[in-house]
């Protein structure tokens, strides 16, 4: 069971309090009516399938209730960073570093 750092509660807490909420940094288009069918399709359905660091949304649903962003390595299943909604994605660590992230933190 993972421990996830909630950027609002500022605590590392059991995964059971959280839920996954899809890929991060996909903003709803300002004016959907102006979207072409292809643009709208991409917004609805096209998602990356990363082997490595993946920016995603999580919600501290059984805690403070806030959605937040996380950068997680899909191979090691380790969280590299969590950050508030609206903040920019931090730069990924170089490949191969994720193994030791927990040991250094």
């Amino acid at each position: 069971m993972l421990l996830i750092h909630c950027p609002y509660c500022k605590e590392k807490l059991p995964e059971l309090e959280f839920e996954y909420a899809g890929q991060a940094h996909i903003a709803r288009p300002e004016n959907p009516a102006e979207q072409t069918d292809a643009e709208w399709r991409d917004y609805l359905f096209i998602r990356s399938n990363v082997r490595g660091d993946h920016a995603e949304q999580w919600r501290h649903s059984h805690g403070c209730g806030r959605y937040f962003n996380a950068l997680r390595n899909t191979v090691s299943d380790k969280f590299i960073a969590t950050y508030e909604i609206g903040q920019a994605c931090p730069t990924s660590h170089a490949e191969g570093e994720e193994n030791n992230e927990q040991l250094e933190s």
């Binding site: 909420a21 903003a27 709803r28 949304q57 919600r59 649903s61 209730g65 806030r66 959605y67 909604i85 609206g86």
Partner: peptide
């Protein structure tokens, strides 16, 4: 409720 919170918090804060 989850869907509403998702839109409210991430799209229309």
């Amino acid at each position: 409720l989850t869907m509403m919170e998702h839109f409210l918090q991430t799209e229309w804060p």
